[in-house]
Amino acid sequence: GTEIELESKNGQREHYTATSEDEARKIIEKAVRRGIKRIELRGASEQLIRDMQEIAKQIGLQYRTDGSL
């Protein structure tokens, strides 16, 4: 699965493990709508990382991946 670590603007951290790319995408989209400061992805697919970079650029988000592409 993909591990997703979120940090909201007030510094609250949340951790999710998505079993599918679809689920990961839903978690990320929800977080973005809620207003999130930072997202870290571990074990994400190349496609998901590309999507994440696109989203991050659009809304000026900090993100990090573990680089295991």
Results as ranks from 00 to 15, higher is better:
1 G>M: 13
26 K>R: 11
5 E>C: 14
10 N>Y: 10
49 I>V: 08
42 R>S: 06
61 L>H: 04
11 G>H: 03
56 A>N: 02
30 K>A: 14
64 R>M: 15
53 Q>N: 07
42 R>Q: 06
59 I>N: 15
18 A>M: 06
35 G>A: 04
19 T>P: 06
31 A>P: 00
23 E>R: 03
19 T>L: 13
38 R>H: 06
11 G>N: 03
62 Q>T: 12
32 V>Q: 02
21 E>I: 09
33 R>C: 14
7 E>K: 05
42 R>G: 03
18 A>S: 08
32 V>I: 14
43 G>S: 05
69 L>I: 09
56 A>L: 08
9 K>P: 10
64 R>G: 15
58 Q>F: 06
20 S>T: 12
29 E>P: 00
33 R>Y: 10
21 E>M: 06
53 Q>C: 12
66 D>H: 06
8 S>K: 07
27 I>A: 01
54 E>A: 11
27 I>K: 01
6 L>V: 14
31 A>R: 02
32 V>T: 04
25 R>Q: 02
9 K>G: 09
66 D>T: 05
48 L>N: 01
56 A>F: 14
9 K>V: 12
24 A>N: 00
63 Y>T: 11
31 A>I: 06
9 K>C: 15
22 D>V: 08
34 R>I: 09
10 N>Q: 05
59 I>T: 13
43 G>K: 05
21 E>P: 06
54 E>K: 08
24 A>R: 00
47 Q>P: 04
51 D>W: 15
54 E>R: 10
38 R>G: 04
67 G>R: 03
22 D>C: 11
62 Q>C: 15
30 K>W: 14
65 T>N: 12
38 R>Y: 14
45 S>Y: 02
23 E>P: 01
13 R>K: 09
52 M>F: 07
69 L>D: 07
16 Y>W: 09
4 I>C: 03
64 R>S: 15
11 G>T: 01
29 E>F: 14
43 G>A: 04
68 S>Y: 11
19 T>D: 09
34 R>G: 10
47 Q>G: 10
67 G>I: 08
4 I>R: 01
6 L>T: 07
18 A>L: 08
7 E>Q: 08
68 S>W: 14
41 L>Q: 00
64 R>Y: 15
39 I>R: 00
52 M>G: 00
55 I>Y: 13
68 S>K: 06
15 H>P: 01
11 G>I: 01
69 L>Q: 06
51 D>R: 11
5 E>G: 07
48 L>Y: 01
68 S>G: 08
21 E>G: 04
65 T>S: 13
56 A>V: 07
9 K>W: 14
50 R>A: 07
55 I>R: 03
10 N>R: 05
65 T>F: 06
50 R>H: 08
31 A>E: 02
48 L>E: 00
12 Q>G: 09
58 Q>W: 06
66 D>K: 03
65 T>D: 15
20 S>L: 02
33 R>K: 11
14 E>V: 09
15 H>Q: 08
18 A>F: 15
6 L>N: 01
11 G>K: 02
38 R>F: 14
34 R>F: 06
43 G>L: 03
67 G>H: 06
10 N>H: 08
5 E>W: 14
6 L>A: 02
40 E>F: 15
19 T>S: 08
10 N>V: 05
42 R>K: 08
57 K>S: 08
46 E>K: 09
21 E>Y: 14
55 I>C: 12
44 A>G: 05
34 R>W: 05
30 K>T: 11
51 D>F: 15
12 Q>C: 14
7 E>R: 07
26 K>M: 12
31 A>F: 08
12 Q>F: 13
53 Q>M: 14
50 R>M: 07
65 T>G: 13
47 Q>K: 09
15 H>V: 13
47 Q>C: 08
27 I>D: 00
28 I>K: 00
58 Q>I: 11
12 Q>N: 08
2 T>K: 01
11 G>E: 02
10 N>W: 11
2 T>E: 01
42 R>T: 07
50 R>C: 06
49 I>G: 02
60 G>R: 05
58 Q>V: 07
30 K>L: 14
10 N>L: 07
25 R>P: 00
34 R>L: 14
65 T>V: 15
33 R>F: 10
11 G>W: 01
4 I>V: 04
23 E>D: 07
28 I>A: 01
26 K>F: 11
46 E>D: 09
44 A>K: 01
64 R>E: 15
2 T>I: 10
50 R>K: 12
3 E>L: 11
9 K>Y: 14
42 R>I: 06
27 I>V: 04
47 Q>S: 12
57 K>M: 10
50 R>L: 08
45 S>A: 02
1 G>F: 13
35 G>K: 04
7 E>W: 14
25 R>Y: 10
50 R>T: 06
42 R>N: 05
62 Q>E: 15
37 K>D: 04
69 L>S: 07
64 R>N: 15
18 A>T: 10
63 Y>F: 15
12 Q>E: 13
61 L>P: 05
54 E>Q: 10
32 V>K: 02
22 D>I: 10
44 A>F: 06
12 Q>Y: 09
61 L>Q: 03
58 Q>H: 06
20 S>N: 11
8 S>F: 15
11 G>F: 02
27 I>L: 05
52 M>C: 07
46 E>I: 11
14 E>C: 15
28 I>P: 00
59 I>C: 15
7 E>F: 13
13 R>L: 11
68 S>A: 07
38 R>M: 08
10 N>K: 05
56 A>H: 03
56 A>S: 04
43 G>Y: 08
59 I>H: 15
48 L>C: 03
37 K>I: 13
52 M>W: 03
28 I>H: 00
59 I>Q: 14
18 A>P: 07
30 K>G: 11
41 L>C: 03
25 R>H: 04
3 E>W: 13
22 D>E: 12
56 A>W: 06
60 G>T: 04
24 A>V: 08
55 I>N: 01
27 I>R: 01
42 R>L: 05
32 V>W: 06
61 L>D: 04
13 R>D: 01
52 M>A: 06
58 Q>S: 11
39 I>Y: 02
9 K>S: 12
68 S>Q: 07
1 G>K: 13
8 S>I: 12
19 T>Q: 13
35 G>Y: 04
16 Y>F: 07
63 Y>C: 15
35 G>N: 05
6 L>S: 01
19 T>G: 10
14 E>H: 12
28 I>R: 00
30 K>Q: 13
51 D>S: 09
39 I>S: 00
1 G>A: 14
53 Q>L: 11
17 T>P: 02
57 K>A: 11
32 V>F: 15
32 V>S: 03
41 L>T: 04
16 Y>R: 02
27 I>N: 00
25 R>T: 02
38 R>P: 00
41 L>I: 11
8 S>V: 09
35 G>T: 02
41 L>F: 08
1 G>P: 12
26 K>Q: 12
50 R>G: 04
22 D>K: 08
21 E>R: 05
45 S>E: 01
60 G>L: 09
15 H>W: 12
35 G>L: 04
27 I>Q: 01
62 Q>I: 15
3 E>G: 05
18 A>Y: 09
40 E>C: 15
44 A>V: 04
13 R>T: 08
58 Q>R: 12
40 E>Y: 15
14 E>Y: 13
50 R>S: 08
46 E>A: 13
54 E>G: 05
30 K>S: 14
49 I>Y: 10
29 E>C: 15
57 K>N: 12
58 Q>P: 02
2 T>L: 12
25 R>K: 07
56 A>Q: 03
58 Q>A: 12
69 L>F: 15
16 Y>M: 03
67 G>V: 08
69 L>W: 15
